[in-house]
Design a protein around this nucleic acid. Sequence first.
DNA 1: GCCGACATAATTGTATACAAAGTTGTGCTA
DNA 2: TAGCACAACTTTGTATACAATTATGTCGGC
Lengths: 234, 234
Amino acid sequence: MGDPETMNKIETRVWTSDTVVADLERAIHEHRLPPGTKLGEDELAEAYGISRTIVRAALLALSHRHLVELKRNRGAFVAQPSVREAREVFEARSLLEPRTAHSAALRMTEAELTRLRSNIREEHAALDAGENGRALLLSGQFHVEIARIADQSTIEAFISQLISRSSLIIALYWRRRAALCETQAHHALLDAFANRDAALAEQLMKSHLLDLVASLDLRNVTQPPMSLREALQR
Amino acid sequence: MGDPETMNKIETRVWTSDTVVADLERAIHEHRLPPGTKLGEDELAEAYGISRTIVRAALLALSHRHLVELKRNRGAFVAQPSVREAREVFEARSLLEPRTAHSAALRMTEAELTRLRSNIREEHAALDAGENGRALLLSGQFHVEIARIADQSTIEAFISQLISRSSLIIALYWRRRAALCETQAHHALLDAFANRDAALAEQLMKSHLLDLVASLDLRNVTQPPMSLREALQR
DNA sequence: GCCGACATAATTGTATACAAAGTTGTGCTA
DNA sequence: TAGCACAACTTTGTATACAATTATGTCGGC
């Protein structure tokens, strides 16, 4: 594919294992790299202008977060969560996020409220601009931000992972319907936070997650591939 | 240090990244590798009879589980959770494990009950034999087994990680007192499971975790090192 | 005698070479 | 022509060589 210039990322930046992980995770979260996409080591190494060593470390990290599936002697692929895994992810979220929202409501400061408000605003703007991937990323960041405000970095790390995996789940199982319900739920949560109503925030988060699961098509039919690309690469 | 034979692991076994991770994780969990221990790459590579490539992958995996801390250009060390991190780990456990015990109670079969009973028996035997490390490992496996029975592999993975980290926390902050309370709590849980009393199991797990935190000395004094070895290697 | 700078050694970070496994394409046979 | 076997190619797995960074030990100056 042409000369290296065309496929390289920003030339000046130094890519380390962590920055490559962040870059790939973002791309996955935004659905620029859909589930099942092959992530060849040489391909990535050339794209980032680094050696396979760093790429492998990044892919290993992503596989530990269940965003990438490593098949021995076959390569790395963007993960394709099963229906089972999808249910499990949202089960885990339902255990973690409502209580975390509760804690966050009690610790919320004005500055943090402002941050959340601007997040919702950006998400809205992205939706209006038709940038669905970016909107989904921002929507996820809203949830992670709440965990951060709760000041529980361990739980935050779990939630962050679950949110990323949720993005893959949405890519696979989302049934196109109302896209606005998301931001509405976030608005409601924000009001609860603004009023420091922890109990309400907890309840709203719980409902929000149930709504999310309900908006998925988790019947076992058409389970694994859902795209012809997968049919040939597995 | 002498000829390679003396420091090698079992010669016949083929060590892969995953098996090395499991081996090291077990050693950490059993306190054979106490917090702060330097894990040199060449040292490990020679011990396992593999190259540094595999060792690095293993250390990377362990760092993602927060069992090993990687300091750039300094090396890998068995993690030393801060008081803050200790509190966070048990906060996360308190969100995950009680509900998981609830689910497990509803799904418990006779075979699984037998497994849990034998686990408690082995833990008792280990304690009697003075093998505290092994007892701690078995105690942790009891909790992970419950998550497995609940049939939620995603939550199980989180709990498994938290249990391993708890082992480090116990190594650092355990205040020597009653050592038997552990097995008593597990016995009580077992009875609840045997009676399929999900509500009771949930409550018992909640109490058990509170007792565990209470048995730790999480005052901020003497926080980081706690051993002279650390004083010089950081 | 104590402190700082420089040289040396040890350890980790990265790239690359080679080996192993898998995939694909071709040609032979039935 | 369909199916199988073999060979060439591609991609990943592992080891190792080299570079960069940090730690250590020594020497000289104050």
